[in-house]
Design a protein around this nucleic acid. Structure first.
Lengths: 234, 234
DNA sequence: ACAAAAGTGTTGTTTTTACACCCATGC
DNA sequence: GCATGGGTGTAAAAACAACACTTTTGT
């Protein structure tokens, strides 16, 4: 058989920018790097692509190995490939952003791995070009979330409209008019009202909603105008 | 110094999906593959990523080597990485789509290289997973063009509104109301009317427009609603 | 004078925004 | 009974879609 002789391979890594939302702040999950150089410095969760797996498989494997999570929403968003981005040797990185429900996994993550959630405005400095990756992932998250209903992935199965609004406000670092916000979200037809209320955050209590899964999957690619004047965020 | 011992590199290729517009059809530039296996079969324009260049640099180099074009609009849009996508050995491909003015370079390309423009609905079968790449590139083009003024890259410096409309209609395979179309495009403030007319396509002649370059660059990231009901195209 | 494409204007509908009040409950 | 957040309604403005006629000029 043929070979592409004369060509030498390049190391390929996967790095995951993992977003979580604790009810008021958008956070990022960082780990302390376990190998030299820069061992013990904060870094994105990453790993090398193996020879028998696709990048998507690798991203899922890495996330599962390090956090125990699977079936997590992930989007491949950019290859970072400056020749000198890793001082050790050339490594290409395929970056993914992931959205997880922070509450479901919070303890599990902190206990079993050297991982920690950081609010976006209190991030430590990161190795290599990881800060650049985070910057672009935030941008990509805002971009995609303005058009598609991805932020639900950051909430528990049952959530209230005020929670949802707090999430959108966290992502865009602004405030939205509550009447218009709830009308807009309800008009998507994606939400199914539940009988119970969440009484945590107010005396009156706010009704829980769930996602209408089939509606969600069908309409996922539609352009929704979920954020007023999205222009100003870019 | 450190090394990531135990890790073996992977070949990384760049493949370019190159779109052109001839005034009525959207076309794709394909080349006859010059190496085994599948030599002489139609393929996307591609090449291996070299050890001292970034993927973006490589994409530009490959396009320039093979077509003589530089300063071409390109967007990195997806990594294709199934382990068996190339039967020879494992090759990861970073796919770019490129938009070029077909007229400016038409002769140059056909003469100097084994390259040829194919209308999208008359494409030959392609090697490996290149047909899949094309499919996703078309989708990505439609997606991005609905929101951002990228299609101008397919036209000459001076163009008329009817030409622009034909282009949009070609990309979305539909027709748009001409009154609404021109109003919408003119309202972006991106177009600068020229004194001359194009008399090729009608007796009356249509005024030429140019892009307002500074306005174009400033507003590039804005969300523009350039295509009515974009939902239906996805 | 007529055919062919360019260009322009209006109206009704829908969407979006801005804004103010009542409701339910725990204390 | 009152403070707190949750929920709903309405009206003005803007954006959009649908639609029809006039203009130019080469033949």
């Amino acid at each position: 058989m043929y070979k592409y002789t004369g060509e030498k391979g390049i190391l390929v890594a996967i790095d995951c920018i993992i977003f979580g939302f604790d009810g008021s702040d958008l956070k990022l999950l960082l780990v302390q790097r376990g190998i030299e150089p820069e061992i013990h410095k904060w870094s994105l969760m990453g790993g090398f692509l193996k020879h028998n797996e696709s990048p998507d498989d690798a991203a899922n494997r890495i996330l599962e190995q390090r956090t125990g999570l699977n079936n997590v929403y992930m989007d491949q968003f950019q290859v970072f490939g400056k020749p000198d981005r890793d001082p050790v040797e050339r490594v290409l990185s395929i970056a993914y952003f992931a959205l997880i429900d922070i509450h479901k996994y919070e303890k599990q993550i902190s206990d079993e791995y050297h991982a920690e959630w950081f609010p976006l405005d209190e991030m430590p400095s990161l190795i290599f070009d990881h800060s650049e990756m985070v910057k672009l992932a935030k941008r990509q998250l805002r971009y995609k979330a303005a058009l598609h209903p991805i932020l639900f992935q950051l909430l528990p199965e049952k959530f209230t409209i005020p929670q949802l609004q707090a999430l959108y406000e966290g992502v865009y670092q602004t405030t939205f008019d509550d009447r218009n916000f709830s009308r807009k979200l309800l008009s998507t037809g994606l939400l199914v009202k539940q009988a119970e209320k969440d009484k945590q955050s107010s005396k009156k209590g706010a009704f829980y909603y769930k996602l209408d899964q089939s509606h969600y999957l069908e309409n996922f690619e539609s352009f929704l105008n979920l954020v007023p004047n999205p222009d100003k965020f870019f």
